[in-house]
Amino acid sequence: MRLILNIIWLIFGGLWLALGYLVAALICFVLIITIPFGFAALRIAVYALWPFGRTIVDKPGVRPGALIGNIIWLLVAGIWLAIGHVLTAIAMAITIVGIPLALANLKLIPVSLMPLGKEIVPVDGPGVPTASGFPR
C-alpha cells in the first residue's frame, strides 16, 4: 500500500514539493553561512519525494544552535514551503483518494517550518518512538 501511495504522491505533488526544497537548498549553498540549512533542505527534499513509510523524530540531546537556526530558517524559507504544503494539501483533499496524500502534506508542515534538530527515520526501523515514548 505504501508503494502505491508513494507513486501517486510523486505524480500528484511530491515532485514539485521536492523541487521547492531543492531550490531552497541551492540558495542556502550559495550563501556560505547557510550551508547547514541547505543540508536540512536536501534531507526534506528526499523525504518529500517518498514520504510514506518514514516519519520525523527529534534528534536526542539539547541543541541550542538548532533553535536559533530554525528561527532564521522560518523567516527565510520555512514559511513559504509551509504555504506550499497547505495549498497542495487543499488541492489533494478535494478527492477521496487524495485525502491520505493531503494528510502527508500536513505531516510535512512542522519539519518545513523547523527542520534543524529533526531526523527522518523508517516507520519500522530503530529510533522510532513506541507507545511508551522510548525508541526501539
Rank of each mutant, 00 (worst) to 15 (best):
residue 99 I to L: 11
residue 2 R to C: 03
residue 60 P to Q: 13
residue 106 L to Q: 09
residue 29 F to T: 11
residue 6 N to P: 00
residue 94 I to P: 01
residue 78 G to T: 02
residue 110 P to V: 03
residue 3 L to G: 09
residue 114 M to T: 12
residue 102 A to F: 05
residue 93 A to K: 05
residue 5 L to D: 01
residue 79 I to C: 03
residue 47 Y to F: 15
residue 14 G to E: 04
residue 70 N to Q: 07
residue 70 N to T: 05
residue 78 G to D: 04
residue 130 T to N: 13
residue 84 G to I: 07
residue 136 R to C: 07
residue 77 A to P: 13
residue 59 K to R: 15
residue 26 L to N: 15
residue 109 I to Q: 04
residue 75 L to W: 06
residue 38 G to P: 08
residue 124 D to K: 04
residue 54 R to Y: 01
residue 50 W to R: 00
residue 14 G to P: 12
residue 50 W to L: 02
residue 131 A to N: 13
residue 69 G to M: 08
residue 25 A to T: 10
residue 131 A to Q: 15
residue 106 L to H: 08
residue 18 A to Y: 03
residue 31 L to C: 12
residue 73 W to A: 14
residue 37 F to C: 15
residue 67 L to C: 10
residue 107 K to T: 07
residue 130 T to D: 15
residue 75 L to Y: 06
residue 13 G to P: 14
residue 56 I to H: 00
residue 106 L to F: 10
residue 35 I to C: 05
residue 82 A to L: 09
residue 124 D to Q: 06
residue 73 W to Q: 12
residue 104 A to M: 13
residue 108 L to A: 13
residue 124 D to T: 08
residue 94 I to G: 00
residue 35 I to S: 08
residue 36 P to M: 08
residue 86 V to P: 02
residue 56 I to F: 00
residue 16 W to E: 12
residue 111 V to K: 00
residue 62 V to E: 14
residue 104 A to N: 09
residue 11 I to D: 02
residue 16 W to D: 10
residue 12 F to V: 01
residue 45 A to Y: 14
residue 8 I to K: 01
residue 102 A to D: 06
residue 91 A to Q: 02
residue 87 L to G: 14
residue 30 V to N: 09
residue 88 T to F: 05
residue 58 D to C: 14
residue 106 L to W: 11
residue 2 R to K: 15
residue 135 P to F: 04
residue 136 R to N: 12
residue 2 R to Q: 15
residue 7 I to R: 02
residue 92 M to C: 07
residue 99 I to A: 04
residue 81 L to N: 14
residue 54 R to C: 00
residue 75 L to A: 14
residue 57 V to G: 12
residue 117 G to Q: 08
residue 99 I to D: 04
residue 54 R to F: 00
residue 22 L to P: 05
residue 1 M to E: 11
residue 53 G to L: 00
residue 16 W to M: 13
residue 42 L to A: 15
residue 50 W to I: 02
residue 101 L to C: 06
residue 8 I to W: 02
residue 88 T to K: 04
residue 29 F to R: 10
residue 94 I to C: 02
residue 105 N to C: 06
residue 21 Y to A: 05
residue 24 A to C: 10
residue 42 L to V: 15
residue 98 G to N: 04
residue 122 P to N: 02
residue 76 V to I: 15
residue 38 G to E: 08
residue 24 A to V: 05
residue 44 I to R: 01
residue 89 A to S: 04
residue 30 V to A: 14
residue 99 I to K: 01
residue 19 L to C: 09
residue 60 P to W: 05
residue 103 L to W: 10
residue 32 I to C: 13
residue 123 V to N: 10
residue 16 W to F: 15
residue 82 A to C: 10
